[in-house]
């Protein structure tokens, strides 16, 4: 039986393959961008407040920093306690156009040895985990290879 593919959070990303994008919102009055999305009020204290419209974020950015999790994170992170914990790499990525930093998991197989601050990465669709009925989808960062990988 096919499991349903469901985003782990609603409204934070959209699309498949090359069309995959993170979704934020942009204030129509001051142009501030928000991720995770703000849908009620602009958080710029100097802004009178405008409509917040959904906007796709840049697909590519540069590594601000990175680390990994060598130990199993606690709940509500979901992992199979029957399986050994496989370390996950996390990357904080600076998006130049939006001037913000977004944290995400790296695609499976990318370790800290493959990364360097300043390296270009792109956002791709990924799988956070699976259970009996659902494949939980998320965003992941993948080096574009256009900068020298250090490993």
């Amino acid at each position: 039986m096919a499991r349903t593919r469901t985003p782990v959070v609603t409204g934070w990303f959209t699309g498949e393959g090359d069309a995959f994008r993170l979704l934020g919102t942009r204030c129509s009055a001051c142009a501030s961008v928000f991720f995770p999305r703000e849908d009620a009020h602009c958080r710029n204290p100097g802004c009178g407040g405008g409509d917040l419209k959904e906007v796709p974020l840049s697909q590519r950015g540069r590594v601000w920093s990175y680390t990994d999790g060598r130990y199993r994170p606690p709940s509500p992170y979901v992992s199979d306690p029957e399986l050994p914990w496989e370390p996950r790499t996390l990357i904080a990525v600076e998006l130049a156009a939006e001037r913000l930093v977004v944290l995400g998991q790296a695609v499976p197989g990318v370790t800290v040895a493959d990364l360097a601050v300043g390296m270009e990465v792109e956002v791709v669709a990924g799988v956070l985990g699976e259970d009996a009925e659902t494949v939980w989808t998320t965003w992941q960062w993948r080096p574009t290879g256009s900068q020298g990988v250090t490993a």
């Binding site: 782990v8 920093s65 680390t67 999790g69 994170p73 606690p74 979901v78 995400g104």
Partner: peptide, 15 residues
Amino acid sequence: RFRVLGATNPTYFGL
């Protein structure tokens, strides 16, 4: 941050 990323406090310290 725990549910979506598994980002513990040491994740941030490492960054």
